[in-house]
Amino acid sequence: MKRILTALGLITSLYVGEGWTRERALTLAGSTTVLPIAQRAAEEFMNLHPDVSISVRGGGSGVGIAALIDGTVDIANSSRPIKTKELKKAREKGIKPVGTVIAKDGIAVIVHPSNPVGELSLAQIRAIYTGEINKWKEVGGESKTIVVISRDVASGTFEVFKKLALGGERVRPDALMLASNKAVATTVAKTPGAIGYIGLGYLSPEVKAVKVEGVYPSKEDVVSGEYKLARPLFMYTDGEPRGLAGEFINFILSPKGQKIVEELGFVPVK
């Protein structure tokens, strides 16, 4: 009996002790476009606050928002505004998603560096993605077949591209479907006839961004609105950001956080 009591006492003290030292935890999931910002910001934030542990996952904007609605994450990263369908779903579950714009991003249309085509109009991009045009020759390039690379439907980049560049039209069925910005960049870099689209933050010398409607996707032209394929990036929280989520979002909006945004190739909002 005594032994049992001691054991119970030990267990209780362990439990209480654990409760005292438990870290404050924050989980984020969603857009692979926002992912690098969230990861870098999380690292720096955890350096400043050793008691905080932040876990950041990708998955795509839709995945993040679905997780926020299910209550499994504190912040949903999204590269598109929340959809009415999702808002309705959230309301049913008693969750009020509020979006904070943490950065701006352009969607760069990219080709292989060896491709002589340096400029496309929105109409040409649409014709390529819907399958009206099959050869680079038709837009002033070589006689190569165009390899059209698109994203999965969970991608916010796809949603925005579909709306801004395709006007809601269907992507040709034989387009390649890849599951992340990085996968698109890697595949375009290794495929001479490819065309793809990625967030500005994923641009590298391995791929070539083309001018869209005569404008190169530079930060200045994303801010001014000259570059047509641009969008805000969001962090969604349940209600106005408060508590640890609020602290974290404020950190990203602070000069230090916005410097991270800029370093990663995105456009600061402040």
Binding site: G62, A66, K85, E86, K89, V153, M177
Partner: peptide, 12 residues
């Protein structure tokens, strides 16, 4: 399934 399940609203 893997690429799209995350985006599909439950019950749709």
């Amino acid at each position: 399934i893997a690429a799209e399940m995350g985006e599909a609203p439950m019950g749709s």
